[in-house]
């Protein structure tokens, strides 16, 4: 007698097989190839390849600029989410839709637009550069463009949690004698922190991998404005494939750590959804 399937929809084994095949072909295979290629170097060679001053400067810049951009996004994204959820104003839905623009826009376009705005002769650059604010071919330029590409993440993670917070909570806090600042820090912010952190981690991860927009504004000077993905590209152009993959493995490691952190944060934030 055949065992009776208790599932409502058929085809579990087929879809599971497809999922695993897809995952292997498109994700695991290239990643293992990358790691395999890197292992063609001896441990000492690997270490040399990933710890040159130029590589260290590139990690520092990538991590630093991504962190700065993600922090900016956390603050700006929170404000935008707050305004979109708590206030009614004309064209609110249009603004809401515009938030997703950095998701849809090819990042190269963003890079081109930013570079044309911030070059010394650009609309904004002509005022900022004379003031000594280097908005072109500088780490600041990288932070600006990364802030743009990572912007939607915090808005989109905070928005639903904020919508679920009843305005009554603020009234309850006020009636219990809390000042506005106490209401914000003790009642509103704590339930939002996991969502803000998740959004922060997502835009940080996005910024680490961002390449297309950065190359237009950074200038890509080794040890100054060269980000890690750019360095990998430079190594490839030198036909130093093994060294390039060694750098890629380091970036891969950082990405994995971040993804794990994001998952933990999401699990944590679910405690507040109910």
């Amino acid at each position: 007698m055949r065992p009776v399937s208790r599932r409502v929809l058929p085809g579990f084994s087929l879809t599971l097989g497809y999922s695993l095949f897809y995952l292997s072909l498109l994700v695991l295979l290239p990643l293992s190839a990358c790691v395999l290629k890197a292992t063609s170097l001896s441990p000492a060679e690997f270490w040399d390849a990933v710890s040159t001053p130029r590589a260290l400067a590139a990690y520092r810049l990538t991590l630093g600029a991504s962190l700065a951009a993600a922090l900016l996004d956390a603050v700006l994204g929170f404000l935008v989410a707050w305004v979109l959820v708590r206030y009614e104003f004309p064209l609110r839905r249009l603004f809401d839709a515009l938030v997703d623009l950095p998701f849809a826009l090819p990042t190269a376009v963003a890079g081109l637009v930013y570079s044309s705005l911030y070059v010394p002769s650009g609309w904004l650059g002509r005022y900022l550069v004379p003031l000594g604010i280097e908005t072109y071919h500088s780490p600041l330029a990288i932070v600006l463009v990364l802030t743009f590409t990572g912007f939607p993440f915090v808005v989109r993670t905070v928005q639903p949690v904020l919508e679920a917070l009843e305005p009554e909570l603020e009234e309850a806090a006020a009636i219990l004698g809390a000042s506005r600042w106490q209401t914000f820090t003790r009642v509103l912010l704590p339930p939002l922190v996991p969502a803000i952190l998740t959004g922060f981690a997502l835009s940080f991860a996005r910024a680490l991998g961002e390449y297309g927009s950065v190359i237009f504004v950074a200038g890509n000077l080794p040890e100054e404005t060269e980000i890690a993905p750019m360095l990998i590209y430079a190594r490839l152009e030198e036909y130093a494939y093994a060294e390039a993959t060694a750098l890629a493995v380091v970036l891969l490691g950082i990405s994995f750590v971040l993804l794990a952190a994001i998952n933990l944060l999401e699990r944590w934030s679910k405690k507040y959804a109910a």
């Binding site: 009843e166 009554e168 009234e171 309850a172 009636i175 000042s179 009642v187 339930p191």
Partner: peptide, 21 residues
């Protein structure tokens, strides 16, 4: 006088408890 200076107790229909506390 704003609500927070009135020293009153208020119970909401849907409790409005602070979920994170």
């Amino acid at each position: 006088l704003p609500a927070r200076q009135r020293n009153l107790g208020f119970v909401f229909q849907h409790y409005a408890l602070f979920r994170h506390l």
